[in-house]
C-alpha cells in the first residue's frame, strides 16, 4: 500500500532530521509516538483487508427451480416490454415540436377543463345548456402553413362555450384578430396558454386581438348568448397583409 510506505518512510526519516536539528528529546518522543499510532492504524487496516480477502465463504446448496417455475407459470404470461418501455415512445416524443405540442395540448385541455369548471360554478352561464358532450365544429378549423410560419386552430364546443385554441409558430410577427357581434357572444376567457417567444393581446368591443412571435398558444373562449346562428371571423395578418381570413358559424 503506497500510503503505508509513505507513512513508514516519514516515520523513519523524521527522527533523524530532528536529531540533526538538535530539537528536544520530548518532541522526538512525541513524533515517534505519533508515527507508531499511525503505523498501528495502518497495520490494523491492512490486517482487516487481508482477513476479508482470506475469509472462507461457505457455499450453501439450494434448489428453488420448481418453486420459481410454479410461481411464474401461475402468472400465465410471457414477459413483454411494457408499452412505455418501448423505444418507439422515446422516439415519438423526442423531437422538440412533438414534445411541445403534446405538452401544449395537455395544458390546453387542463386549462379548458378548469375554465369550464369555474365558469359553470360561478359564471352567468346557463348550466342547463351544458348538457351534452364536447363536439368539434367540423370544417371550421384553420390550418395555415407557409415557409416557416404556421397557424392552427381547431374550434370545439362544450354547451354554449366555444373554444378557439390557436397554435402559432412563426419567426416573424403574426397578428390575429377574432371578431364577433357582442349581441351573439361575450368573451369568457382570452389568454396565452403557453408561450415561447414574444406576444401581446388586447380586447375591444366585439374583437379579440393578439400578436405573437415564436411558438405560442392562445386560447379564446366565447360564450354564446343567443340561440340563433352566429358568426365569428378570424383574420391573420403578417407584415400588414391579410394572409388568412375565415368566417366561422356557430
Amino acid at each position: 500500500m503506497d500510503f503505508r510506505k509513505n507513512a513508514s518512510a516519514q516515520s523513519d526519516k523524521n527522527p533523524d532530521k530532528e536529531q540533526m536539528k538538535g530539537k528536544s528529546s520530548d518532541r522526538n518522543l512525541a513524533e515517534n509516538s505519533s508515527s507508531k499510532t499511525e503505523n498501528d492504524h495502518l497495520d490494523k487496516l491492512k490486517e482487516i483487508e487481508l482477513h476479508l480477502e482470506k475469509t472462507h465463504v461457505e457455499e450453501h446448496p439450494v434448489d428453488i427451480t420448481e418453486e420459481v417455475m410454479q410461481r411464474i407459470t401461475s402468472k400465465k404470461r410471457v414477459p413483454k416490454p411494457s408499452w412505455w418501455d418501448n423505444p418507439f415512445w422515446d422516439q415519438l416524443f423526442n423531437p422538440f415540436p412533438v414534445r411541445y405540442a403534446m405538452i401544449l395540448f395537455t395544458g390546453v385541455m387542463v386549462g379548458t377543463a378548469f375554465t369550464w369548471f369555474f365558469l359553470a360554478e360561478i359564471g352567468p352561464t346557463d348550466t342547463s345548456r351544458l348538457a351534452g358532450s364536447i363536439s368539434s365544429a367540423s370544417g371550421q378549423e384553420i390550418s395555415y402553413a407557409y415557409q416557416h410560419s404556421s397557424i392552427k386552430m381547431i374550434p370545439y364546443q362544450i354547451g354554449n362555450l366555444y373554444y378557439l385554441n390557436f397554435v402559432i409558430n412563426s419567426p416573424n410577427e403574426l397578428h390575429l384578430e377574432t371578431s364577433f357581434s357582442t349581441t351573439d357572444f361575450k368573451v369568457a376567457k382570452a389568454e396565452f396558454v403557453m408561450t415561447e417567444g414574444s406576444n401581446s393581446s388586447d380586447y375591444n368591443m366585439g374583437s379579440v386581438n393578439f400578436t405573437a412571435t415564436g411558438m405560442n398558444s392562445f386560447q379564446l373562449i366565447l360564450e354564446k348568448t343567443t340561440d340563433a346562428q352566429a358568426a365569428v371571423t378570424v383574420t391573420a395578418f403578417q407584415n400588414q397583409s391579410v394572409i388568412i381570413k375565415k368566417h366561422l358559424t356557430f
Partner: peptide
C-alpha cells in the same frame, strides 16, 4: 426463447444462477 413464449426455458437460467444468488442473499 422465453420472450418468444417458451417459458420453460427460463428453468435453465434459474438452475444455473440460483446458487450464487442464494449465497449472496445469505451473506
Amino acid at each position: 426463447k422465453v420472450l418468444k413464449g417458451q417459458v420453460n426455458a427460463y428453468r435453465v437460467l434459474v438452475d444455473k444462477y440460483q446458487r450464487p444468488v442464494y449465497n449472496l442473499l445469505i451473506r
